[in-house]
Design a binder for these strands. Sequence first.
RNA 1: GCCCAUGUGGCGGAAUUGGUAGACGCAGCAGACUCAAAAUCUGCCGUUCGCAAGGGCGUGAAGGUUCGAUUCCUUUCGUGGGCACCA
Length: 956
Amino acid sequence: MEYDFRKIEQAWQKKWKDDKVYKVSNDSAKPKYYVLDMFPYPSGAGLHVGHPLGYIASDIYSRYKRLKGFNVLHPMGFDSFGLPAEQYALETGQHPAATTEKNIETFKAQLDKIGFCYDWDREVRTSDPKFYRWTQWIFLQLFNSYFCNTQQKARPIADLIEKYETRGNKNFTAEQWKAFSKKEQEDVLMNRRLAFSAFGEVNWCEALGTVLANDEVVNGVSERGGHPVEKKKMRQWFLRITNYADRLLEGLETVDFSDSMKEMQRNWIGKSEGAEMDFQIKNQKSKLKVYTTRPDTIFGVDFMVVAPEHDLVASITSADQKEEIEKYFAYVKSRSERERLAEAKTITGCFTGAYAINPFDGREIPIWIAEYVLAGYGTGAIMAVPCGDQRDFAFANHFNIPITNIIGSHYNGEEANPTKETILENSGFLNGMLMKDAIGIAINKIEELGIGKKKVNYRMRDAGFSRQRYWGEPFPVVWTDGIALPLDAEELPLELPHVDKYGPGPEGEGPLANLKDWAEVAPNEKRETSTMPGYAGSSWYFLRYMDPHNGEAFCDRKASDYWNQVDLYIGGTEHAVGHLLYSRMWTKVLFDLGLIGFDEPYKKLLNQGMIQGSSRFVYRVVSTSKSGMSKYEYPIFISSKFYNKYLEKGFLSTETLDDWLNGRFDLGWKSLSENPNEGILSVISIHVDVNIVDGVELDIEATKKWKPEFADSQFILEDGRYICGVETEKMSKSKFNTVNPDELCEKYGADTFRMYEMFLGPVEASKPWDTKGIEGVHRFLRKLWRLFNDDLKGKVWNEDKATDAELKVLHRTIKKIEEDTERFSFNTAVSTFMICVNELADLKCYKKEILEQLLILLTPYAPHIAEELWSQLGNAGNVLDAEFPTFNPALLVESTKDYPVSINGKLRTNIELALDLEQKQVEEIVLQNEVVQKWLDGKPHKKIIFVKNKMINVVI
RNA sequence: GCCCAUGUGGCGGAAUUGGUAGACGCAGCAGACUCAAAAUCUGCCGUUCGCAAGGGCGUGAAGGUUCGAUUCCUUUCGUGGGCACCA
C-alpha cells in the first residue's frame, strides 16, 4: 500500500470538519491555552508560502498543547477593512465588500488545504457590522473617558464633569464652568477625552483632491500621477495614547516579548527626562521655549533651531530675512517627515534674523529654522550645542557658526563628542563639574530662576485615528455647531452606507461626504465622514474570538475571565510598534473601565521571520541599435555563464552570438571592430516565473508556453542546460517569485508542506524560499509510512515487544521533540523526526509499541498522516485526543562517555571513560594515552581541564 | 539618518549554559538493484598539503578576554525589517 497523501488528507479533512473535532468550548475543566496568529489582511493575491509560516508554527503549538491536556483556543479571522480593497474599487469599480468577500473565501480555502485546527465557528471579520458594531462601541468608551492623572487610569468623562461642576480646576472655578457655553465646555472636555478631535497634518495632494497614505507618496509626489504633495492641517480624530506612555513602558516588564521587541517599543515611546526652559528673544516680548535633555551644556549653546512650522517664526523673523524664510518654508512643506529626518548629508536651514539671550551669560544666540527639528516633538525648538551633538556640529560647520567648546580637550574640532562623563569648562557656575552631575544642578538653577522646569518628554505622539477613506468603520459621531455628539450605544452599528463612487469628497473629506442623504442627519447636524484606520478592529479582535456571537456585549466578562490573556501570539516584527502598542493601549483602557480583568493582551509574543522570494532571471539578447537584432526573428536567451561573460566584457557582437547559435563555443570573444557593419548587442535580465525553474535550471518548454512571445525562442545552453540567475527579493507577483502553497499541497501533500516550512530554519529567522529541498521532507514521510506498510506486502507493523535499543530511540525522540516544541525550535524537531525514523528503519523496528507513540509526537507537525496511521493501528478515536508520551530518563542512562581530548584547545583524540571517574583518575588515564604522549613529547603538562560529561583539555 | 535583527560548506541550516564546528536535509559524486527508468538502498561529500598516517587553515572582516570563542567584549563591513495614513 502506497502513501497516497491526496486521498488521506482529503478524507481526514472532511472527517475532522464533519465531526467538528476543532470545536472549542468556553466551558471546560481543562486548563486553558490561547494561541493567536496576527490577523491577516485578505489581499487579492491570495496566500503565498510566506504567510503560513507563522500559522503552521501556531498550529503545531496548539495541537501540542491539546495533546498535553489543555483546552486550546486557536482561532482565525480577517482584518478585512483596508486601503488595498478601496484602491482596487477605485480602479475597477467593484465594491470593496464584494472583493473582500471573494478574497476571504480564497484565503479560507487555501488555509483549509494546509489542515489547520481552527474553530471556524469563531471566525471574525472586522468589516462585518456585527463585529464593527463593537469597534464603534469601544470607540464610544474611549470618547466618553479621560485619563485621570492622579489615579493614572481611564475614568468615565462623567466623573470629570462632576469634578468641574463642584470644584472646577486650576484654570476655572465651578461657577465659571457652569457659566461656559455648551461649546466652551465641550472644547474643554475634548482636551481630556481618550478619543478626541483636533487638527493634524496630512499628506495633501491638491491635484488628486485627496489625502494620501505615506506609501502613496514617493519622493514628495503622489505615486499615482506624480503630483505634488504637501502638508495640510485637517480636523482629525486621535487616541490619547501618550497618556498611557508610562504604563505601556511598565507593562513591558510583565510580558514575554523578545528584548529587541521591547527595545523597539521603548524607543518608539521615547521617554526622556530633561528640562524645558524659556529664552528671552532680543528686543521682543516673546520667549522661545526649548526642550533639552542636556541642560548641563547650556553654556555651549551657539544657536537655536526652531521647527519651520513653529508659531513664533512669523513674528520673530526680521524684515530682511523674511523672503528667505518663506522660501525655505515652502521647501519644507514639500518634504515628508522621513525625508526631513533622514537626510543628514544635505544640511538645510535658514536664519530668522532674531536672537535669543542666554539667561546665564547674556550671550546673543542666533535663531535658525531647519527641517530636522519637528514641530510635534518637545517644544518644536532646540538649543544647539555643536561641540556635543553631531547634527548641531554639522549644521554649525555648514553655516559657519562659531563653536564654543565646553569640554576642553575632549572636543577635537573635527566632530562632536556627546559624552556625559567629562568635566565642564567654559561653563560659568557649572565649571569643574562632571557633566552628568551638572544636569541636575542646572535644572535646579533653572527652576530657581523661574525660567524653566524639569520635564519628562515622550517621542511618541497621539495616534491619528481617522482616515479620509471609505472602507473602514464609520465614526458613531454627529457634529452640530462644532460639537461632536456621540451616538447612543443602541444606535450601533452605524452601518457603512453603500457608495457608487470611491473618489474623495469635497475639501479632501472622505468619500462618505459625497452622500448628502447619509451625512446630513438633520439641518445643522452632520455625520463624521472620515472612517477609522486599519488598526481599529485589530486593536481588540483577540477578545471577540472568546465570545464571537455575543449580541449583547463585545465579549462576555465570563468568557474573557476564562480565556484571559493570549498565551502565545505569533506574528511578524513589522507590527512591533503600531499594532502592538495600540492593542496594548486599548486593553489597558478596557481594563481601567472594568470591562476586562487584565491589562496586557499578549503574554508571550513570538516573531516569525519573513519568507523572502528567491527570484530567477533569464538573459535576453537585445539590440542597442535598430539593425542589431533584425536578422534574428526570434527572441534569444543566453544562459547564466554567457551573461556573466557579457557583463565582464561589457558588449556582445553579433558574430559571437552567431558562433553560439551554431554551437561553436570555442572560438573566443569576437570584438566589435571585426565586424563594424553589424549592430551592437546588449543583454537584459528578465524575471522568470520561479515555478518553471528547477533549482536554477530553466524548463525551456514551459518557458515557451509561459509567454506567447517566447514561443519561438532560441536558448543558448551551457552543458545542455539553461542556468538562470538568482537574487533574493521581497516575494511579489510582479517579480514572478511567489510560490503558491496550494500547488505544493497538491504535489507533495499538506503534511510535507507543513514540515518543510518548519524545516527551512528557525521560525524567527527571515530566509528566502526555495522549493528545492521539499523532496527530502517528502521522502521522510514516505519512509515513515514504510515502517507501517510495504508497497507490495501491505501491512508490516506488528505487536512484538520493543527492545531496549528501540525504546532508547523512542525516548530520546520524546525528550527532544518535547524540548524543541516548547522552545519553538520546530526546524530541529523535524530533524529529530528524521533521525528517529532513520534509526528505526536501521533497526527494522515495525513495532506498534514504538510507532504508536511516535505518531502522537508527530501529530502536531503532520496531522494527516499521523491520524491515518493511528487509525490503521486499530485506534478508534482521534490521535489529537491521545495523551502526549511521557519521557522516561531511566532508559537513556549511560555509564561511559567517549570524551573528546584536546591539547591546548585543539581536538586530538577521543577516550572512552566511565562517567563516575574523578579528575585525578581521569588525569592518569589521559596521560597514559599515546596520542597525548605524542603531543606532550616528553615535556610536562601545565594542567588538565576536565569537565564531567563534556570534555578534557590538556594544557602544555 | 535613527532603531531592531542578521552574517557558519555549493545551498537551507545544527551546535539549548563558553566545551568534539558543519547534526538533519538539498544538490553533487561513486556503487547496488533493474532489460531500462522511477523508486529504494550503500558509501563519499568545508578547504588545503600528503601515497598514507597525519597535519595546516576555517563560522562576514580586524582586534581582545579565556585552558578553550560560531557563542562574551571592542571596532568595522554587508544584508533584511521598521520609522507614525499599507496592514
